[in-house]
């Protein structure tokens, strides 16, 4: 999998959020996007997910312009600004609801993912009873459960206790070895410093690659 971001600019009214961004992202690597809140990280992630159209430029998935084709990128899962789960379903039922859309996995895979994010014990609790950290874990579980090729994580370690965060970092390293393309956006550099292969800094619409 190769994602090419070519001359991408995104404006909201007259406000330039991203200015002529160019980068190539490839399988088997972890990419870190860092920058303060509002620096355009989430906007770029949403464009990669084909949720927004760039004002100019293009984003290609293995050469295919997904946005132009009115489709969404295949085998890509994301958590951006927290998902909207149904409050009166349990954690497991919420995952099942999402899994039912593509019907790729069953109960077994869902339970394995819940174990991975240390949420298995609370799988039968209603989402409305979840703490902030548990909600974040469920958000991550919906990303991992279908074994996607591209993993997009916006502030993934927010509210997650150290034990789970360490486990997830190891998991992401393993996924990278399996050839997954992983993008992690955060405003805390230390969150991703040791994890990523390439690091990009977002500032005032411009993106610069940082030396590791």
């Amino acid at each position: 999998m190769k994602i090419e971001i070519k001359n991408v600019t995104k404006k909201f009214k007259e406000n330039i959020v991203l200015d002529n961004v160019n980068m190539t992202l490839e399988s088997g690597k972890i990419y870190g996007f860092i920058g303060r809140n509002g620096s355009g990280k989430s906007v770029l992630l949403k464009m990669i997910c084909a949720f927004y159209e760039p004002t100019s430029g293009e984003i290609l998935f293995d050469g295919e312009n997904v946005i132009k084709n009115k489709s969404f990128p295949k085998n890509t899962r994301a958590i951006i600004e927290g998902p909207n789960f149904l409050p009166d379903l349990t954690g497991e039922e919420n995952l099942q609801l999402l899994a039912d859309i593509q019907k790729k996995i069953g109960k077994k895979e869902i339970e394995e993912t819940l174990k991975l994010v240390n949420l298995y014990e609370d799988k039968d609790k209603k989402y409305s009873k979840y703490s902030l950290g548990m909600k974040q874990k469920l958000g991550l579980a919906q990303v991992f459960m279908e074994n996607p090729d591209v993993i997009i994580l916006d502030e993934p370690f927010n509210g997650i206790e150290d034990k789970t965060a360490i486990k997830l970092r190891e998991f992401l390293k393993e996924e990278k070895k399996k050839g997954k393309l992983i993008i992690i956006a955060t405003h805390i550099k230390e969150d991703v410093d040791k994890l990523v292969d390439e690091l990009y800094k977002f500032d005032e619409g411009k993106i610069t690659k940082l030396e590791k």
């Binding site: 084709n69 969404f72 994301a78 958590i79 998902p83 789960f85 999402l98 859309i101 958000g139």
Partner: peptide
């Protein structure tokens, strides 16, 4: 977004 990204098109 978690729902939307699961749609084909």
């Amino acid at each position: 977004g978690a729902l939307i990204i699961r749609f084909k098109n």
